[in-house]
């Protein structure tokens, strides 16, 4: 299997879907002539032309609304946000229109649109450009939220998102774009709503997504040195949550640690904990632990940024706690 960078896998997904379906088009800031702020749309303008790869002005609310309208009338737009931090400006279109039109029109209108872009702690980008906002979008009925952690998942999930009949919010961690991974050759998709067991284990379940998949796998390797066999469940999709796979793993290991880059309060993990306590209560041998970003705005200073992020030692500490070790 060829190894591709995360951004190359996304590029393949876009190109394949645009090739497959002429209704698919890409719009966003710098997606065309600049080939994308993170080079995800590299070469697409040359290949598909300016009618399908559209450079938008700095007007998130405007082009989010334009995309929503295009979806309502039958196109399949992919709207790239330069980062999700900027998409806060577009929330009205995404939340009040894209997420609700199907419901409010009694099913007469559809909104097959993908909003996608980078997110998370990108490395010394300070408070306003380092946020993890997935929990906010996951909060609204009517939106699907995906957050792949590997190139393979990124490609397969983006293709599914483009083909979905509903608005899909796709988070791409800024530090994952240059991460390489095996990507199958040829046509494949990964269904939205399916978690993936990235590492099998029997002692504890690490439930995670996005960039934290890699931290969790590294922690699992560290823990293995101490004889702890951790299972790593990559959610891949935040909403709808793959309840079955989560519960199956927790029932097997009896212990869960949730690893997420967002803030703990009302974070994605809080919902996972709720699921576990309500549907796997009798299988728990220890309270569920969470490893999250500390409840602070991320600093520009590298040491403070690092101190606020989840880390392998913090994951190991939480695992030891649920295992009653140390």
């Amino acid at each position: 299997m060829p190894e591709l960078m995360y951004r190359e896998a996304l590029n393949q997904a876009l190109a394949e879907e645009m090739e497959r379906d002429h209704r698919v088009f890409l719009m966003g800031e710098e997606v065309g002539r600049y080939n994308g702020a993170f080079k995800v749309s590299q070469g697409l303008l040359d290949r598909f032309g300016s009618a399908r790869v559209v450079d938008a002005p700095i007007s998130e609310l405007g082009f989010a609304g334009l995309g929503t309208g295009a979806a309502m009338v039958g196109l399949r737009p992919v709207i790239e946000m330069m980062t999700w931090n900027f998409a806060i400006l577009a929330m009205d279109q995404i939340v009040n229109n894209a997420a609700k039109l199907r419901h409010m029109s009694g099913g007469q209108l559809r909104c097959p649109i993908v909003f996608r872009g980078p997110t998370g702690i990108g490395g010394r980008l300070s408070s306003q450009h380092s946020q993890s906002l997935e929990a906010q979008y996951a909060h609204f009925p009517g939106l699907k939220v995906i957050f792949p952690g590997t190139p393979k998942d990124a490609k397969g999930l983006l293709k599914s998102a483009i083909r979905d009949e509903n608005p899909v919010i796709m988070f791409e961690h800024e530090k994952l774009y240059s991460v390489k991974g095996e990507v199958p050759e040829g046509e494949y998709t990964i269904p939205i709503g399916e978690a993936d067991v990235k590492r099998e284990g029997k002692d504890v379940t690490l439930i995670t997504y996005g960039r934290q998949v890699h931290f969790s796998l590294a922690a699992a390797e560290e823990l293995a040195k101490n004889g702890i066999d951790a299972e790593v469940v990559d959610l891949r999709t935040i909403r709808p949550l793959d309840e079955e796979r989560i519960l199956e793993s927790v029932k097997k290991t009896n212990r869960a640690v949730i690893v997420e880059e967002d803030w703990a309060f009302c974070g994605v993990g809080a919902t996972v904990v709720d699921l576990i306590q309500s549907k796997a209560f009798d299988y728990l041998d220890a309270p569920v632990e969470r490893v999250t970003q500390l409840p602070v705005s991320i600093s520009y200073a590298a040491n403070l940024e690092a101190a606020a992020e989840p880390s392998v030692p913090r994951i190991a500490e939480a695992v030891n706690k649920v295992l009653y070790r140390g």
């Binding site: 101490n226 009798d282 728990l284 041998d285 140390g326």
Partner: peptide, 25 residues
């Protein structure tokens, strides 16, 4: 602190009075 490498379970403690604390499992 006992390192994770030393997986010696702590000795059972005297039971607390009244309500019994037990994990759901």
């Amino acid at each position: 602190v006992p390192e994770p490498a030393a997986p010696v379970p702590p000795a059972p403690q005297p039971k607390p009075e009244g309500r019994i604390f037990a994990s759901p499992l």
